[in-house]
Design a protein around this nucleic acid. Sequence first.
DNA 1: ACCTGAACACCGTTCAAGT
DNA 2: ACCTGAACACCGTTCAAGT
Lengths: 219, 219
Amino acid sequence: MHKRKRSKPAARRRPLSAESILRVAVAILDRENLDALSMRRLAERLRVSPMALYNHVRNKEELTERIVDTIIGEFTSPADAGAWHERLRTCFGALRTVCLSHPNALPLIERMGSISPAVFRPMEAALAALREAGFVPLEAMNAWCTLIGFTMGQLSYQLRKPVSFDPSVAVERRVLSPEDFPHVSQAITAVPDWDFDRAFAFGLDVIIDGLQARAKATH
Amino acid sequence: MHKRKRSKPAARRRPLSAESILRVAVAILDRENLDALSMRRLAERLRVSPMALYNHVRNKEELTERIVDTIIGEFTSPADAGAWHERLRTCFGALRTVCLSHPNALPLIERMGSISPAVFRPMEAALAALREAGFVPLEAMNAWCTLIGFTMGQLSYQLRKPVSFDPSVAVERRVLSPEDFPHVSQAITAVPDWDFDRAFAFGLDVIIDGLQARAKATH
DNA sequence: ACCTGAACACCGTTCAAGT
DNA sequence: ACCTGAACACCGTTCAAGT
């Protein structure tokens, strides 16, 4: 018989590893969505029994934490050179870009309980810039908290199920009446082309201006 | 026989209604957690078959959106009087307090796709103050976006599974080495008593300072 | 109009068994 | 050391049936 060696088991991959599991998991997340990421479907994609995964990952929670690590691991710190406020801008801009490249992962990022170096790299870069600006540790931590809160909070809005959050569809559906919400109504007609990039740049400028004023005040 | 009228069916409540369902659902959320909020457990608490719920609520998604509406509905707008920056402060402070009183609901709030007046009340109050400050609609919207992003993003950090996010436990577990993360390490030893209320006040001040500078600049 | 039980198609995970 | 199938205890939801 002319069977080729081991050709039958239908493209049975190289031995399962935490890396391959993680790679396929992120692929499911990016190409489908969060609901599609179940242990059973993941195993199916890897052509393996669901229980095989548990040899490489303790449980689903550990899997999701490692996914978050992998994603945040894509962040690269800004160069040490340049003005501190410029470094802050590129730091949080880069973090935002990473998160935007994996939009379905945001709920996992927001709810991660993990501790890995990856998570602290943006923090380290930001604190370095803030200390250089002259802030004492407490101020630097408060400033970091302001910047990361703003960045992630904006992303949360941007990546929400979009149609329904758009205030203009609320107007169409009559739940937002111009009598009860004059300013909201006026704002959405006056700003028909909402741009999250522009809003992020605006907010970052506002915060950095506020920080700069404080940095000068204490010097 | 001395059966009391209808006393047997074990405290079978008044007829099921969307209100009673919502009330019990929020109770489960507040006293247990998000995982405990399933249609089946909710029905059990209401002493009713799971399917009975579907006479009052289209599906679980509609239920969670109505929960978010109820919670955000607890927000009360600040009075129209006072300086615009003070009104902003009380507005976002009040919103934050509401969210903090239902800590397990934050993931639902962050992922709501709902449109109801409740959701736009804080926005209306903030835009009113911002317009009074002299911002044109686009600026006012950008400023709103900055403030709400910051507020919700901070809450997301504050309400994370706490132990594991605390950087100091990362140090204990050796994943955060002082050599690789000098500034993070220094910051957490220098600031042992982290206070989210203080951090929120700091961030709000920074943002409002930045906005105030802009408001003056254009006048 | 409202509620029910049975059933379906999913979950994550334990366990005993195989190599 | 790694993988498997069967089983358990859950989900949300459909459907046909009851009042």
